[in-house]
Amino acid sequence: MSLTPELLNRITQNPGQCGGRPCIRGMRIRVTDILEMLAENVSISEILEDFPDLELADIQACLVFAARRTDFPRLTA
């Protein structure tokens, strides 16, 4: 059983919040902020300490969301 749909439900997009950018569970914590922190080698435990309302599954949801957004089929001739 895949947890992907459950994880993706943690990502919300509301036009009136953060300029319509994807956020985590309706909070004003943007997916891009979490991804940038991970890219800057901030540990998951540090992120969870800095954002006590976040859960590990929220960070996993950001990664799944990004993976889905970059999964473009490539057509070859």
Rank of each mutant, 00 (worst) to 15 (best):
71 D>K: 11
4 T>C: 10
13 Q>R: 14
21 R>C: 07
36 E>G: 09
68 R>K: 15
23 C>D: 01
44 I>C: 06
41 N>K: 15
37 M>C: 08
72 F>D: 12
62 C>V: 02
61 A>P: 02
14 N>L: 13
75 L>G: 08
53 D>F: 09
16 G>F: 13
76 T>Y: 14
21 R>A: 12
44 I>H: 04
10 R>P: 03
11 I>W: 02
1 M>K: 11
43 S>H: 05
65 F>K: 01
64 V>K: 07
48 L>A: 04
65 F>Q: 06
76 T>F: 14
33 D>P: 03
71 D>A: 15
35 L>S: 07
65 F>C: 08
3 L>Y: 08
12 T>C: 01
53 D>Y: 09
10 R>F: 00
20 G>Q: 04
50 D>L: 11
63 L>N: 04
11 I>L: 03
9 N>T: 12
62 C>W: 00
6 E>M: 12
72 F>T: 13
59 I>M: 01
41 N>S: 14
77 A>Y: 08
63 L>Y: 00
6 E>R: 14
71 D>R: 13
15 P>T: 06
2 S>W: 07
33 D>T: 15
25 R>M: 04
2 S>P: 15
47 I>G: 04
14 N>P: 00
12 T>M: 01
70 T>L: 14
24 I>C: 06
75 L>T: 11
24 I>Y: 02
49 E>S: 12
15 P>I: 10
49 E>H: 11
6 E>G: 08
10 R>W: 01
13 Q>A: 12
64 V>F: 05
20 G>V: 01
7 L>M: 06
21 R>I: 02
74 R>A: 13
24 I>H: 02
52 P>L: 06
67 A>I: 06
15 P>V: 08
45 S>G: 00
2 S>T: 12
26 G>C: 03
14 N>M: 10
70 T>W: 08
29 I>A: 01
2 S>R: 10
55 E>N: 07
8 L>W: 03
2 S>E: 15
21 R>T: 06
19 G>H: 04
